[in-house]
Design a protein around this nucleic acid. Structure first.
Lengths: 169, 169
DNA sequence: CAAGGCCTTCAATAAAAAATGAAAACCCCG
DNA sequence: CGGGGTTTTCATTTTTTATTGAAGGCCTTG
């Protein structure tokens, strides 16, 4: 009968100091643009890896579950932050980090920021209608403020194309 | 003896359609820059209010707790999104929304984005040292990628002053 | 300087978000 | 097709984050 290992810890092959730094860096970054920890972990690991990793490697090295790895990779693929490469003689997908960092910013701007600005501007239209039906003294305040907010949002929106151009290469 | 009200619901004076729209709009916005729901609610309410509101009013109208109102106002004061005005004959503080919307963007950039970029650039310094001690084939990959990341971050950082100038007024 | 209204704090609770892993689906290749 | 390796899905559990409200501090006022 086989004896149990000396410790009860999950046997994650330990990460190098470089990997740890990279992972922490990208966790922080990705959180900022609304992506979760496990997504940042995976990208951080791949970023400093000189070879492509299979999902299995990722789970083991990071000590995360199968589901988390699968979902994390799905997100990373969807924003183009990761691509799979063919490995002869291995049926598993292997992933490498896409180094075009601007993709994250682009995805964030186009998928988070822009839609939110559009939605807000629509909503202001609704609010202008509602405000127009109010008692005069309240109406004036509301209309002035809505106008102001609208201007500011439009200004923000007008900046996005420029911002994109600046960030992409 | 006074009879109890007919319903058991908390007697939040109901919000107008305009207020609801405003609140939803700012909840969304504030979430984007990492502020919580109750903070957005309070600002949204104040934004369309033509008179200053006491903390008590805010709690009642929004149906949130004393603590949430207090903490929400604290956050809003700290980013300058709200200011208190003096109301003769009333000991309570009364709040109005500061309409300088750019303050939110500015606070976000200076208190969230900038520090994070600085921290990331520091970290890259550490990583470069770590990379230089690696085996040649891995070292080369790591160094190239770190260089690339560094460039991109520096580029981002260089954009911040411009962005601030654009957003403020 | 005491009483009471107003506000803040913070430990406890509730709500929301993320991670887990078993079950099902999806492939290849033979 | 059929078996087995690989991946996805999703109900459950865990973790994280936000909210609550009682206790206590701070003022103002009488």
């Amino acid at each position: 009968m086989q004896v149990a290992p000396a410790t009860l810890e999950p046997q994650t092959e330990s990460l190098s100091a470089l990997e740890v730094e990279s992972i922490e860096l990208f966790i922080g970054f990705f959180k900022l643009i609304g992506l979760q920890k496990s997504v940042g972990e995976i990208y951080g690991l791949l970023f400093v890896s000189s070879r492509a990793l299979a999902m299995d490697d990722i789970m083991t090295r990071l000590g995360i579950s199968l589901g988390a790895a699968s979902q994390g990779l799905k997100v990373l693929r969807s924003v183009g932050a990761v691509k799979s490469v063919y490995m002869p003689g291995d049926r598993r997908d292997h992933y490498v980090a896409d180094l075009e960092l601007s993709k994250f910013a682009t995805a964030f701007i186009q998928e988070e920021l822009k839609p939110r600005l559009d939605r807000a501007l629509e909503r202001i239209g609704t609010m202008e209608t509602l405000a127009s039906e109010m008692a005069p003294e309240d109406r004036e305040t509301a209309e002035e403020r809505l106008e102001r907010l609208k201007h500011w949002l439009e200004r923000g929106e007008s900046m996005l194309p420029w911002l994109l151009k600046f960030l992409v290469k």
